[in-house]
């Protein structure tokens, strides 16, 4: 009886492992032909990519753009998801080094904690390119955008719409993250330049739409008609604030701007609900990062810092950013 139990248990375990493996295979990307010979000739370079987090919309866009560009350039990509863990990111770079890839693209999780990943690659003499955000250790090249600029554009737009005079509220991102710190800095530069602007309240909604909605509802209660404009440090939160204002019947009197140009926000700008967002160019960043990585792999000289500009999106130019 006991033996039977043990056997059935092993059968079950075997079945489960098979099922899990099958699932894993189903989840794999279709392999891009050959590419057996990792670290092979420079005519088909192999680039290792480690991304911050493939469950964030912007990073998914970055990944899509990298894949498209790789096909165009005839490059083989190995894409790993660090799932927000700098420790995992370091391991991924170490395994890229062990596989002797031709170059590495790093989309860092954190300024400090992801720095060892850059160091490992440099020690091994493999070129490394940071994309989208920075690390303390300097990579061979950096491709990204200045996050301060995005907030400066959005806040500057609100300042113009208010004629340089009026009351604003600001919804912060997750406190202490690089994007929050820089967007905060950019927004404050604009506030400092306009003495007529008053920041009535500021609070974090942790990049989250539902939290921003509750926060805005609460502000509508405490500040009411005095609020003339809302700056949210990302579009998710801008959408939350927008919905809260619409439900309170106040949207026609309050200007709302966000950052990121996610699909939903672009639709809202098109419909005249959201006043402005700021486009961060995922395709531009991915394309430039991959081109830089390939050039480094071939030993060519590259631009050490490559800033892809942000663009303000309003109803006037939104059609250019909407996908057909």
């Amino acid at each position: 009886m006991q033996i039977m139990n043990a056997m059935t248990r092993q059968c079950w375990l075997g079945l489960m492992v098979t099922a899990v493996l099958a699932l894993g295979l189903a989840g794999c990307r279709p392999a891009e032909s050959t590419g057996e010979q990792v670290g092979g000739a420079a005519d088909r370079p192999v680039i290792g990519v480690t991304l911050l987090n493939l469950s964030s919309e912007f990073i998914v866009m970055l990944d899509d753009a990298l894949q498209a560009k790789a096909k165009e350039l005839g490059v083989e990509l190995i894409v790993n998801d660090a799932q927000r863990s700098p420790e995992r990111q370091i391991q991924q770079v170490e395994s890229f080094v062990a596989r002797k890839v031709d170059a590495i693209i790093l989309n860092p999780c954190e300024v400090e904690a992801s720095s060892p990943a850059v160091d490992r690659a440099k020690e091994a003499g493999i070129p490394i390119v940071n994309v989208n955000s920075e690390t303390r250790s300097t990579p061979d090249a950096f491709v990204g955008s200045r996050d301060e600029e995005s907030a400066r554009l959005a806040m500057g737009y609100l300042a113009d719409r208010l004629g340089g005079k009026g009351n604003l509220v600001m919804i912060q991102g997750y406190m202490g993250q690089a994007a929050q710190l820089k967007r905060d800095q950019g927004a404050r530069e604009v506030l400092a330049a306009h003495s007529g602007l008053t920041l009535l309240a500021e609070q974090t909604a942790e990049w989250d739409r539902a939290k921003a909605m509750s926060l805005m509802e609460n502000w509508i209660q405490s500040h009411g008609d005095r609020i003339q404009a809302v700056f949210a440090q990302n579009d998710e939160m801008a959408m939350g604030a927008l919905i809260a204002l619409e439900q309170a019947g106040m949207k026609d009197k309050v200007r709302v701007a966000g950052v990121d140009a996610i699909a939903d926000a672009l639709q809202a700008v098109k419909a005249g609900r959201l006043d402005a967002t700021v486009f961060q160019d995922a395709r531009g960043q991915a394309g430039a990062a991959l081109e830089t990585a390939v050039a480094l792999a071939r030993g060519e000289a590259v631009e050490r810092e490559n800033y892809i500009p942000f663009q303000l999106v309003t109803r006037d130019n939104v059609d250019r950013f909407l996908k057909p």
């Binding site: 469950s55 964030s56 739409r209 539902a210 909605m213 959408m239 939350g240 919905i243 939903d264």
Partner: peptide, 13 residues
């Protein structure tokens, strides 16, 4: 209710 309130179904919600 959350999806309806935020007008999207979000995998990170």
């Amino acid at each position: 209710v959350l999806a309806a309130r935020t007008t999207t179904g979000q995998p990170n919600a």
